[in-house]
Design a protein around this nucleic acid. Structure first.
Lengths: 67, 67
DNA sequence: CATTATTAGGGTAATTCGGGTA
DNA sequence: ATTGTCCGAATTACCCTAATAA
């Protein structure tokens, strides 16, 4: 019984833990279009794991070396 | 709303994986009419794959990235 | 018929939403 | 401008047992 879902989804709380921020902050990122999100029919947000990891990787490359 | 013979039916558990929710939540969606469902003679619910995928796509947000 | 996994149904925590505020 | 927190309301997750599915 394998489903052809090509993407794993994360909850706001899980993303919040990964970024070490409050879930509310993740919600704001979604509202502002900084991160893509999917809504459940009930209105709760889900986030694509691949996108989240990409954002995390980008943070890694940002060494705050602003001039 | 007739059933297409070529349509694949999904179990509550399979739909739950796609939305990253508990199977019980999918049941509530069906009870509340948020998603169409078909009952087996034994009372178990089945969901149309096409409808689920359509719903998933419609609930996909890509708010314009405000600067 | 026996076995194992999933689902139904109900009830109760936990999470999330949305707005407003610091 | 971004984040954290408080609030009430809604949605979702986890607990159980019995029934259905395969």
């Amino acid at each position: 019984m394998s489903i052809d879902h090509n993407e794993r989804l994360l909850t706001p709380g899980e993303v919040a833990v990964m970024f070490r921020v409050d879930p509310k902050t993740v919600t704001r990122w979604a509202s502002g279009g900084r991160i893509g999100s999917i809504r459940t029919p009930g209105g709760h947000r889900r986030f694509r794991e691949s996108e989240v990891r990409t954002l995390l990787a980008e943070l890694t490359f940002d060494v705050d070396a602003a001039g």
